[in-house]
């Protein structure tokens, strides 16, 4: 057992898989000698050498194109896009090429690759280095989308993503990089498409993702002290989506609140809400409520960014207001 930060867990998860499988290689800007701008790949160059851990030019299309070409010819690349906002400069490779080529070729090619990226706000970086882009990826058929919320899950889900034969977008909430957790020794392998119930309650179900998970848990503690007992689900994977767990837990409490860092429109919570409304409408005791960032670019100022992204306080008051109305 060791206490690891979220960022240390990334390197540990990657190292675990690189030791196991020589076809796993890592590429990206500053991932080698510098150990990653967020220090998520510290020690990998030293352990695995420059042939398997390669620094690239600032060329996101080249990085992801190379990952795709390598994946279709026998390697299992892990590519880093430093900030998920930068997917906007290489989205052709992601959405048109990687996501669609297996289907278009009637299954002739597979893309066992992982694209990791620092995602989301909270670091006061402004509108172009703070976006939560999980929904960009979720809406493209052919991409799996994984968003861990803690250090232990980072290792296990990274291993599962690397071992998966489909392309996985692995989004790391930047605001969680310094969070710590006790992690057992030895290999850890998790399962894609499995949500986790982190807390069982009887009055309402909070469904959260990534950076919103610790906030939802804290909000649930406060709500419990005020007589509202909440279940908290960590979605962990948007594609595949564990609708079984979500539907079961929402049906049990009769109320659904989604907690989403993304701007309002077309957030993953809207899809969850739609599935719940379609399939267990008569188990609901009240309206479905989505708690999201407003539909705005994220502002840089700390005071404004804190107002924008759902806070523990906003979760608590939103749930209380809805439950008491």
């Amino acid at each position: 057992m060791a206490q690891l930060t979220f960022r240390e867990s990334i390197a540990r998860g990657i190292a675990q898989e690189m030791r196991r499988d020589e076809s796993v290689v890592l590429l990206g800007e500053d991932v080698g000698a510098a150990g990653g701008v967020f220090k998520g790949t510290v020690g990998l160059l030293e352990e695995f050498g420059g042939v398997r851990v390669r620094d690239t030019p600032i060329s996101e299309q080249a990085i992801l194109g190379a990952a795709m070409g390598a994946a279709m010819t026998g390697l299992r690349p892990i590519a880093e896009i430093m900030f998920s906002d930068f997917f906007a400069v290489c989205w052709d490779i992601v959405a048109n090429e990687i996501a669609k080529s297996r289907y278009m070729t009637n299954g002739q090619v597979t893309f066992p690759l992982v694209i990791r990226s620092g995602n989301g706000g909270g670091l006061r970086f402004g509108a172009q280095h703070s976006q939560s882009v999980e929904n960009w990826a979720m809406m493209v058929p052919g991409l799996k989308v994984v968003v861990p919320s803690n250090a232990l899950d980072v290792i296990g889900l990274m291993a599962a993503a690397v071992r998966d034969d489909d392309p996985v977008i692995f989004l790391e909430a930047k605001v969680l990089y310094s969070s710590k957790m006790d992690v057992p020794d030895g290999d850890i392998v998790d399962t894609l498409g499995s949500a986790k119930v982190l807390r069982e309650g009887s009055n309402a179900t909070l469904v959260a993702l990534g950076s919103m998970v610790p906030r939802a848990l804290e909000a649930a503690s406060e709500l419990a002290a005020n007589g509202i007992d909440c279940t908290v689900i960590d979605v962990r994977s948007l594609v595949p989506l564990d609708t079984t767990t979500i539907l079961r837990e929402v049906a049990a409490t009769g109320r659904l609140f989604t907690v989403e860092e993304n701007p309002r429109l077309c957030g993953w919570g809207a899809e969850v809400a739609s599935i719940v409304a379609d399939e267990i409408f008569y188990d609901l005791d009240g309206p479905i409520v989505r708690i999201t960032t407003p539909h705005i670019p994220l502002p840089a100022a700390d005071a404004l960014e804190d107002l924008a992204i759902p806070s523990v306080e906003r979760i608590v008051t939103t749930v209380q207001k809805s439950m008491n109305s």
Partner: peptide, 25 residues
């Protein structure tokens, strides 16, 4: 024949990836 790519230029980096794989192996 590893594909015909219909968005201009997309496959140039993808070919690099295949070449990288050959180099690596």
């Amino acid at each position: 024949m590893m594909g015909s790519y219909a968005v201009i230029g997309a496959h140039l980096p993808i070919a690099c990836g295949a070449a990288w794989s050959a180099q690596y192996r």
